[in-house]
């Protein structure tokens, strides 16, 4: 029998342990926190794919979250079950990404960033008066409840979010080790040289943009299964941008484990500071500034720099050698 490598085994073991949590009766609050963590993790991992590996400072995750959430919510009122709506929402987010790709990819650097930043604002305005189905559910307004999610337990939602986060990490892991990852890194490092080496810049940027939009959409829609009421001000809220951005920058941009560390910190801070309202953002902002100044490559970058992974890796290798001997 072939013994799997420990570096493969460890993530699988962690995944299985996390999947067991709802079954062993851990406090419901924990499941709630972890649910948020998984959603933020999926968003941050995708934001890192764009900003860290493709060089696209994309500032419209809230467009994808809002569109996917709205698609799913509206769908539940016209007979589409939320499970199908989840996929449909992600598809709509990806379709939106496809539609805007031609104009926004004509802009570079900071212009691309600003070009993407205005889109969710436009969508927010649109969804504030557009009401395709049904009557206002609470005396007017443009919000929608997500119907038919009552039977979906917290455990189910937790597993869904865990699966989305795991898939997002796995997708980036595969991309980085494939031809696509090489091309994306080339684009990030130097667009001109990439083009003259035969890289079709538009097509590669579009690939990572569509993947990110789809997974951000599905993560956003999953959030609205758990919090089954969407409004323009929540779906298209700028915090859907700030969370993955902070998680990625604090954790380490362009580093695979960066968003994992960052998302954990951002989730922790969010619940720790939940009672302090506006102060919460202020404190998070200060932390962001300190991280950028003290560790420009984020926490994961610092860990790599000081060689924090050397000891565990050496232990892994030693253990592996031992297993193979017996």
């Amino acid at each position: 029998m072939k013994i799997p490598r420990l570096t493969t085994l460890v993530p699988v073991v962690i995944l299985v342990l996390l999947a067991l949590f709802p079954l062993i009766g851990i406090p419901l609050n924990w499941l709630n926190y972890l649910f948020s963590f998984f959603i933020y993790l999926a968003l941050a991992t995708m934001w890192n794919l764009l900003a860290g590996y493709t060089g696209l400072i994309m500032l419209c995750p809230h467009a994808f979250v809002g569109l996917a959430g709205y698609t799913m919510a509206i769908g539940t009122w016209v007979g589409v079950p939320f499970q199908a709506g989840l996929i449909a929402g992600a598809a709509v987010a990806a379709l939106f990404a496809l539609l805007i790709s031609y104009p926004v990819f004509r802009m570079k650097g900071i212009y691309f960033a600003i070009g993407t930043l205005v889109l969710p604002e436009a969508l927010k305005a649109w969804f504030s008066f557009w009401r395709p189905v049904g009557t206002a559910y609470q005396g007017g307004g443009a919000g929608y409840a997500v119907a038919g999610v009552a039977g979906f337990t917290l455990g189910d939602k937790y597993w869904l979010a865990l699966a989305i986060a795991a898939v997002s990490i796995f997708v980036v892991h595969i991309i980085l080790r494939a031809r696509l990852g090489l091309g994306l890194t080339a684009i990030r490092d130097n667009e001109n040289t990439a083009a003259s080496s035969g890289v079709n810049i538009f097509r590669l940027k579009l690939s990572s943009f569509l993947i990110a939009a789809f997974i951000m959409g599905i993560a956003g829609a999953a959030y609205y299964i758990h919090n089954p009421r969407i409004q323009p001000t929540s779906g298209f809220n700028i915090s859907w941008l700030l969370l993955p951005l902070m998680a990625t920058v604090i954790g380490g941009e362009g580093i695979e484990e960066g968003p994992i560390i960052g998302a954990a910190i951002v989730t922790f801070l969010r619940f720790l500071l939940a009672d302090y309202g506006a102060w919460s953002l202020f404190i998070q902002g200060i932390i962001l500034v300190v991280v950028v100044v003290v560790m420009p490559q984020g926490i994961a970058g610092l860990l790599r720099q000081v060689g924090a992974y050397r000891l565990p890796l050496r232990l892994f290798k030693a253990a592996e050698a031992k297993i193979h001997k017996t």
């Binding site: 090489l182 890194t185 990439a194 890289v199």
Partner: peptide, 17 residues
């Protein structure tokens, strides 16, 4: 150059693409 890539990966981009 592609600064974050090794010399070998730099030219791999050209052969792959």
């Amino acid at each position: 150059p592609f600064t974050s890539l090794s010399a070998r990966q730099n030219i791999l981009v050209a052969t792959e693409y």
